[in-house]
Lab assay of single mutants.
Amino acid sequence: VRQEELAAARAALHDLMTGKRVATVQKDGRRVEFTATSVSDLKKYIAELEVQTGM
């Protein structure tokens, strides 16, 4: 499950970095929206997932 969450989070980051205004991911069973202003929060979430998956 964590691998899927990590892939979704990375895709969301890619979307935001390429101009999409809002990206949505499932985080702990709930839907979370990230915007360009919350990229740093999304990067932290990705880092947490990488630690949890041993990457």
Rank of each mutant, 00 (worst) to 15 (best):
D41H: 06
D15E: 12
A47K: 13
V1P: 13
D15Q: 09
G54W: 02
M55W: 02
S38M: 15
D41V: 06
A7K: 12
V51Y: 14
V25K: 02
Y45W: 15
A47T: 09
R21H: 13
R31A: 15
D15V: 04
M55Q: 15
T53C: 10
Q26M: 15
R2W: 14
R31E: 15
R30I: 14
T37G: 11
D41F: 05
G19P: 01
Y45R: 03
E48S: 08
Q26A: 08
A23D: 03
D15Y: 04
H14M: 09
E50N: 04
R30S: 10
D28K: 04
I46F: 01
A8K: 09
A12V: 04
L16T: 00
G54I: 06
S38R: 05
R30A: 10
L42N: 00
Q52H: 11
M17A: 07
V22M: 09
A36I: 14
A12M: 03
E50I: 08
K27R: 13
D41T: 06
L49F: 02
A8G: 07
V1G: 14
D41M: 07
K20R: 07
V39A: 06
L49Q: 01
V22Y: 06
G19W: 00
Q26S: 11
A36V: 12
Q52S: 11
H14V: 11
V25M: 05
D15A: 08
L16C: 02
E48P: 00
D15N: 07
I46G: 00
K43W: 05
E48R: 06
E5G: 05
A7C: 10
R31K: 15
A7G: 06
K20N: 08
V51P: 04
L16S: 01
S38T: 14
D41A: 09
Q52I: 14
A8F: 07
E48M: 09
A47Y: 11
I46M: 02
M17P: 01
V39T: 05
S40V: 10
V32M: 11
T53L: 15
R31T: 15
E4R: 12
R2Q: 12
V1A: 13
A7W: 09
L42G: 00
L6M: 05
V39M: 14
D15P: 00
Q26H: 11
D28W: 00
T24P: 05
A7Y: 07
K20L: 08
A8C: 14
A8H: 07
I46R: 00
E4H: 12
H14G: 06
D15C: 07
G29K: 03
E33S: 06
K44D: 12
G54Q: 09
Y45H: 05
K20C: 08
A11C: 09
V22L: 08
E5W: 06
L13H: 02
K20P: 02
D15K: 07
H14W: 06
A11I: 09
Y45S: 02
K27Y: 04
T35M: 06
E4V: 11
A36Y: 11
I46H: 00
D41E: 14
L13D: 00
E4Y: 09
K20D: 06
K43F: 08
V25T: 04
T18Y: 07
R30N: 11
V39K: 04
V39F: 05
T37Y: 05
A9K: 00
A36N: 10
V51F: 14
E4F: 10
H14F: 06
G54T: 06
D41S: 07
A12G: 03
T53F: 15
A12C: 03
K44P: 00
K43P: 01
T53P: 09
M17Y: 05
I46E: 01
T24K: 05
S38H: 10
S40Q: 14
D15M: 07
Q26N: 13
Q3G: 11
E33D: 12
L49Y: 01
Q52V: 10
E50K: 05
S40A: 13
L16I: 09
M17C: 11
A9M: 07
T18D: 09
H14C: 12
